[in-house]
Nucleic acid binder design. Structure first.
Length: 406
DNA sequence: AGTCCACAGGAAGGGCAGGCGA
DNA sequence: TCGCCTGCCCTTCCTGTGGACT
């Protein structure tokens, strides 16, 4: 009985939600999964990529290509855009071209050399056991499979730096030399990376081979971000659902970081969601401010939650100490409090050397600000302050107390 | 100019867990 | 299943350092 009552109430709620005036026409347009029809301010780079890869349409082997730039600069989108168009032309012209896109950050796909090559072979319909064969054998299966007809394969390895991190650069060495093993088909590598310096640690042969052609994607400026948001906003929102200044504000927030379009789109989406939840008739600038705060808060809380116990203990010690010693504290003081708290709560005590590293990590996470300062006669230390507002701090404290059971 | 503080942070290596491959 | 390998977390030991103090 109660179930019927409450479910009918719930259904009323859903129904009224569906009847309400909506802000979003197609929210997907603001996510990274969406493939827009236009990519503003990237024509020059798209043309460059297309020129480099065009020989593939004549079944000639294009140069390997390395695309790099910070997050949200349109690298992946541009490469995929070129691929899609090439595949279309190839199909019309009857050219045997295969484009393979792999995100190396995906687990169980690119964790190890073996897994990646096995995954590649499986893309050509070859069933390779997920473990058990020698890596050489898997390579052999892969070579044989792709070499069974004359064709060009474009292999896009997104977040290629993650692949190297996880399984070393021998896989790139093998892939860049693959054409020596193939008789009929050709393979070109397109590496995409957010990490601008990752090639520095590569084997020099791999480095020169992968970087036959390089394209750097620069960050967008505020004006360019505005154009992108306008374009996507048209697809995502109903007409007149966006108040004046909303797009400019989102663009300005994102440009302040490093011109990250993904962040700008995310901000616009969250602002829309907030407006919708508040039953507003349109998205206003105040919703963008709220969205900015919400994203910031979620980012910090998520970051803290993911930290290992010892890191949480160190952070808790810093916050605890800052209560009595605003606005900043030093490494030595933090370590004393940390020892006291871990002792009282029954946690293992790390050395000061290790705690010093944990403080650096928390700094990199953006949860605290730690600056090395010299106090002359009184030594060198880190000056540590909190990198979050008071309301967020309170939520972080609650989270820490809860998870550390303090 | 020299000393000295309170660390920062590099190097080397131990212990452990988990994955790999025969 | 089991030995081997690797990566991660951590300790120990150490050298380096900016600037107040003498």
């Amino acid at each position: 009985m109660w179930r019927n009552m409450s479910s009918s109430r719930l259904q009323d709620r859903f129904n009224s939600y569906l009847e309400e005036e909506h802000i979003f026409e197609n929210k997907r347009a603001l996510t990274i999964k969406y493939f827009p029809s236009k990519i503003p301010h990237r024509e020059e780079y798209i043309n460059k990529i297309a020129d480099i890869l065009a020989p593939a349409l004549r079944v000639e082997n294009p140069s390997n290509l390395f695309v790099y730039g910070k997050t949200g600069t349109g690298k992946t989108l541009s490469v995929k855009y070129v691929m899609e168009n090439m595949e279309e032309v190839a199909e019309k012209e009857g050219v045997s071209l295969k484009c393979l896109y792999i995100n190396c950050n995906m687990r169980k796909v690119a964790d190890t050399e073996y897994r990646l090559v096995a995954h590649l072979a499986s893309q050509f319909g070859e069933d390779v056991p997920s473990t058990g064969l020698p890596t050489d054998e898997v390579y052999r299966i892969f070579y044989d499979t792709i070499d069974d007809e004359e064709r060009v394969i474009l292999l896009i390895l997104d977040e290629i730096d993650k692949l190297i991190q996880k399984s070393g650069d021998s896989i790139l060495y093998n892939l860049t030399r693959i054409n020596n093993e193939l008789e009929r088909s050709e393979l070109s590598l397109i590496g995409i990376s957010n990490n601008l310096t990752f090639t520095e640690n590569l084997d020099s042969r791999v480095k020169s081979s992968l970087g036959e052609e390089e394209i750097l994607f620069p960050p967008y400026d505020a004006k360019q971000l505005k154009d992108i948001l306008k374009e996507r906003g048209k697809d995502a929102f109903y007409e007149d659902a966006l108040g004046g200044g909303v797009i400019s504000k989102c663009a300005a927030y994102a440009a302040r970081e490093h011109g990250d379009a993904r962040r700008a789109l995310n901000l616009l989406r969250v602002a829309g969601e907030i407006a919708e939840r508040k039953n507003a008739s349109k998205v206003g600038e105040e919703h963008v401010d709220m969205a900015e705060r919400k994203i910031e808060r979620d980012k910090i809380l998520m970051g803290v939650r993911k930290q290992p116990t010892q890191s949480k203990l160190v952070l808790y010690s810093i916050i605890d100490l800052l209560r009595s010693k605003e606005p900043s504290v030093q490494t030595g003081d933090v370590y004393s409090i940390y020892k006291k708290i871990s002792n009282q709560s029954g946690y293992r005590q790390l050395t000061q050397r290790r705690v010093s590293d944990l403080i650096s990590e928390l700094d990199m996470l953006g949860v605290i600000n730690a600056k090395v300062i010299s106090k002359g006669r009184y030594g060198r230390t880190r000056e540590i302050s909190l990198g979050m507002s008071d309301p967020i701090k309170q939520r972080v404290v609650n989270l820490l107390e809860n998870e550390l059971k303090i």
